[in-house]
Design a protein around this nucleic acid. Structure first.
Lengths: 264, 264
DNA sequence: TAGTGGTCTAGACCACTTC
DNA sequence: AAGTGGTCTAGACCACTAA
């Protein structure tokens, strides 16, 4: 038999999903359920904690326990990198994203710090540099209104970006056109990319920074950007609140028996 | 100040990561830590539960609490769909995967059930069918030895697969060459795919089926497979233990200002 | 100040594994 | 039978929020 706290949690979860509690609505208070014979305070508390870990509710002292509204997934496709957006237009990839989804862009939705740092192992590997070599790191925290959604840190080789706007530590999307535009102006036109994704438990720092609910996971995204001749011009590492995003990729079925120069 | 159980958990986590406890080694028993003045049984138990949720240890009654070994991520790239593997060779995609990683293939590592079911909403949408239309569902549970790693359910339109080996409910990878080979033989050569990934909390059923640790998330993968003329011949839905996989995709930076027929 | 969730204790008892 | 983690209770007290 399932534990008492698990049964209680499942029962409430079912009620939430059936719509008996609307998003924003308060759940019964712990002491009330104790009174109603659902168990001791610890037992009811365990059930509420489980619901919180499952992302259904948020609890806070003084406030109570309220049903979370489930914001729709933010869908990310490769069209967010469309050259037309950053080369010809006024937009930066992440802004274009907003435009497409009907949200207004606000300047302070992205904070940025630029610094010269020794390359961490994954960065060095991506750039083909010895570990610890100097690279420029441009770290951003991207927000949706007041809610942080992900971090994104781009690493560049010094010889590619020194003397460009990227090195200017002014907050904001690296000026008109963003980082890709700056590289383009410097003679490095990006051509293809490789993205790797995996999910993991967040660090305690990330929990604070991204305002993650207890038990919530993150997805780490590694993006390596190449020019047409295969030079790596950017390696970016993003940490996303896992529950808030989906990723979509289109590709041809590879066929190693043919060499048509199309597939990669 | 952080709660006492959190401090204890962080201290132990640090020791584990520093290597003070080797994988497979037992942590001190709860009662011992109570004796040592780390708090009451509930407090120490809360700390251990947190470590379990973070994937560092597994607890079981009778056994104790042991440090988990972190199996390396299984890396999935699009080369696992290489036509050479299922068209010309003897392998099926998932077997080729094993071969590449040096693991032996065993017949019983995949169980399969085939049935005709009314299409769930996402399936109907992918196939362009009305909701509830009949489709064939081929559900597999894939294991790595005794450890289940993911489920994968493929949905086919009846007119594409009736009379083929796919409909034969024999356990195993749908015969020589797998599902793609069967479609190929039936005149539907797969050409391109779209994959969408997102992470979510598992259902209680999935926790059992995939033997997930408490607090562990899953990644849901939607794969739509097309022929060259754009016909959808398969929609597959996979549920993966999130901590055990990474996905990699290569793509050209799109450029909507040109129409070179290469990018999609 | 009143009301909310969060932590902690001490101890009883249960469930499962191993010997 | 002995030893492990898991559940549960009753109650004290703490931390934060809102009126």
């Amino acid at each position: 038999m399932a534990p008492k706290w698990r049964e209680l949690a499942d029962r409430i979860a079912k009620e939430i999903r059936s719509g008996a509690y609307a998003p924003g609505e308060q759940l019964p208070q712990i002491r009330d359920l104790v009174e109603a014979g659902e168990g001791s305070k610890s037992t009811v508390h365990a059930a509420y904690k489980a619901l919180e870990a499952e992302g259904l509710v948020t609890s806070s002292r003084g406030h109570g326990t309220v049903v979370r509204d489930q914001p729709p997934l933010k869908r990310l496709g490769i069209e967010r990198y469309d050259k037309a957006k950053w080369r010809d237009g006024d937009e930066v990839a992440f802004i274009a994203d907003r435009v497409a989804s009907g949200r207004a862009y606000r300047r302070n939705e992205q904070t940025q710090t630029v610094s010269k740092v020794p390359a961490p192992p994954v960065v060095a590997a991506a750039h083909g540099l010895p570990e610890g070599a100097d690279v420029y790191a441009r770290a951003r925290l991207v927000k949706e209104g007041a809610q942080p959604t992900h971090t994104l840190t781009s690493y560049y080789r010094p010889e590619h970006v020194e003397g460009t706007r990227i090195v200017d530590p002014t907050p904001g999307p690296a000026g008109r056109g963003g980082g890709f535009r700056v590289l383009y102006d410097a003679g490095y036109e990006i051509d293809h990319m490789r993205e790797t994704l995996f999910a993991r438990v967040p660090t305690t720092d990330e929990v604070q920074l991204l305002q993650l609910a207890p038990g919530e996971w993150v997805v780490e995204l590694h993006r390596t950007t190449f020019t047409a001749d295969g030079t790596v011009v950017e390696f970016a590492l993003g940490v996303h609140a896992a529950a808030r995003f989906s990723w979509t990729y289109d590709f041809k079925v590879p066929d190693s028996a043919t060499e048509d120069g199309d597939a990669r």
